[in-house]
Design a protein around this nucleic acid. Structure first.
Length: 138
DNA sequence: GCCAACGTTGGC
DNA sequence: GCCAACGTTGGC
């Protein structure tokens, strides 16, 4: 089971938008960064991800699941870009802020902290567990 | 709104 | 293939 983190500006596509898609999920289109794309190519059906609000909130608010493995991005004809589909699983009972992640023991190596610009990031199993605990999903 | 960090582009 | 210029992202 792989663990990931997806960033989105809530102004553009927020957690409520993701939830509104229900079980059908939504294509995580628009990524135009090779590293982020490669991360999506590595994802398997059922992999779990955190849904992070950048700029506004700066916090992890929910859990999503890969509901379709990577396929061509429908928003471009450029064959370089493809993406997975995500469906909302459940919200964190308490959002986990970037501020908290920065000082939390065990999260020192999080990509979110060291490469905040990468929009699709890997998360380790240990980091996943710590954040779930902090979010009230122990 | 500013700016640092990072990725991409294009001239050489 | 190097690197300067430029654009974008996202925290502050």
């Amino acid at each position: 089971m792989g663990y990931w983190l997806f960033k989105s500006e809530p102004d553009t596509w927020g957690w409520p938008d993701q939830v509104a898609r229900g079980a059908a999920g939504e294509e995580w289109h628009g990524v135009r960064n090779y590293q982020a794309r490669n991360n999506m190519r590595a994802m398997k059906l059922g992999d779990q991800g955190f849904f992070y609000h950048s700029n506004i909130g700066k916090e992890i608010v929910g859990i999503v699941e890969v509901s379709r493995e990577s396929q061509p991005d429908s928003t471009t004809d450029d064959l370089r870009w493809d993406c997975v589909c995500l469906r909302a699983v459940r919200p964190l009972l308490r959002p986990v802020t970037l501020e908290v992640c920065k000082v939390q023991l065990g999260l020192e190596q999080m990509v979110l902290i060291h490469n905040s610009r990468l929009s699709v990031q890997p998360v380790t199993a240990q980091e996943w567990q710590i954040i779930c605990d902090l979010g009230g999903l122990g």
